[in-house]
Design a protein around this nucleic acid. Structure first.
Lengths: 234, 234
DNA sequence: CGCTCTCTTGAGCCCGCTCAACGACAGTGG
DNA sequence: CCACTGTCGTTGAGCGGGCTCAAGAGAGCG
């Protein structure tokens, strides 16, 4: 199941941090080969459901996704969960300021990543300026995504949340209108600040309204009416 | 009205990006003098309510707050607003990947900032590694803040949101239990994903429960029971 | 004094949550 | 082969937290 094909379709972006981007909401696909084959990177695989690291673990590594999907999340003391992001091939995550990881990272499906020792971070940054630029660019991208997601969480209705989510996943997972969601409903709910029931009901309603269709399994989504979804988006 | 005193109380942190921090939720106070007196920085002032830049403006500068409070926000087409962050003295904001600013920045109260030309960004980064490290550190801090705020927006109740907000503002604005909120209720509401009425009602309830007290004006807050507020926090 | 801006309070409603049941499907073991 | 079990998704009924709409209370200011 090589999900890498999703990456190959992405437009290449110049390495410079100030490079123009097609749309700033694009995932942080920064010159895949440079980092993936970087001499300091270690390739690792995780199976579905496995934990890459937990909140509070010492932050020894940071990661770049090669294939598969990773979720990063935080838990409240009573178990409420917020998934901050789904990381697809090309995305970088796990970079911390403090000594410890401030969120948990788990494999949504089987995953291959490249990991980098954090204590070589500064030297990497200075020895390889292009690498540093890519990291900075990736950070800014993550921040922009986070900001967009805050608008969604704070101000959008359930229908708008799902429209935004589906359009975003479509852009990141495929070039067309058909794609398979790698994650289950619970993950979507915890990402959008909803319950699983509301996610299910809202998706059903979108199908009834003809905006989307389900494939054979409930994981396959076909966008029937991008225009009207986009309308719900902002 | 020198709000700068807020900064002076902050612990100094080493310049290195991997430096240990007291708590990772601390604002990104990076060696104030280094950046504020940086030869490439331009000092500018804005009066209360003034716009530093708008969503969609070319991103010519990025900024560091010297005194006062800045809010950065996004608007939906129908006017719904989400305030992503309040920037206090020492905080850096306005750094973009694309050509344009992706949010609006406005002065919550009279503000002094240092602005940096973005097109000198890369050269700054490479000529002055310490400056680059500080920027990277600041970015990571912003990202951590954003992640915490997503948990708040997606998963916390109104009461928990306000408890978290008040504790955070207390940490950033003062060392004690008494502080003046620089922003009005509407701003708080749009930051926490609530309505102004809910903010007002919830604050009143916190006063009735003895967790906080109002000063003379509604802007002055006194934390009466940090422990119980902290309990609502997670 | 009137005007505006900000904040508070009240009454009622609705969107999304809670609780609960059910169906589809995949293992798994007899 | 079927029964049993666990996981995942859907659907229904009813509730409630936060929203909407509306009015009023203060404070600042010309």
């Amino acid at each position: 199941m090589p999900v890498l094909t999703a990456t190959q379709g992405q437009p290449r972006v110049p390495a410079g941090i100030l490079a123009m981007r097609a749309t700033a909401t694009q995932p942080q696909h920064v010159e895949a080969t440079t980092i993936e084959r970087h001499p300091n990177g270690i390739r690792r695989t995780f199976i579905k459901g496995e934990e890459l690291f937990a909140e509070g673990d010492p932050a020894e590594f940071f990661y770049k996704v090669v294939s598969g999907t990773v979720r990063t999340c935080k838990l409240l003391s009573d178990g409420r969960r917020q998934i901050e992001a789904f990381h697809l091939p090309g995305d970088i995550f796990g970079l911390e300021n403090g000594q410890d990881h401030r969120f948990t990272a788990e494999a949504v499906e089987d995953v291959v990543v490249v990991s980098f020792r954090r204590n070589r971070f500064t030297s990497l940054l200075h020895d390889d300026p292009a690498f540093g630029d890519q990291l900075m660019s990736s950070m800014i991208c993550s921040l922009e995504r986070a900001h967009d997601h805050m608008v969604l969480l704070g101000r959008k209705t359930a229908q708008e949340k799902l429209a935004t989510f589906l359009l975003d996943m479509a852009n990141r997972l495929s070039k067309g209108d058909r794609f398979d969601l790698p994650m289950q409903r619970t993950d979507i709910a915890d990402h959008l600040g909803l319950t699983i029931e509301t996610v299910s009901r809202t998706l059903t309603q979108l199908v009834r309204d003809g905006l989307i269709k389900f494939g054979a399994a409930g994981r396959t989504i076909i966008l029937n009416n991008r225009a009207r979804l986009q309308q719900l988006n902002a």
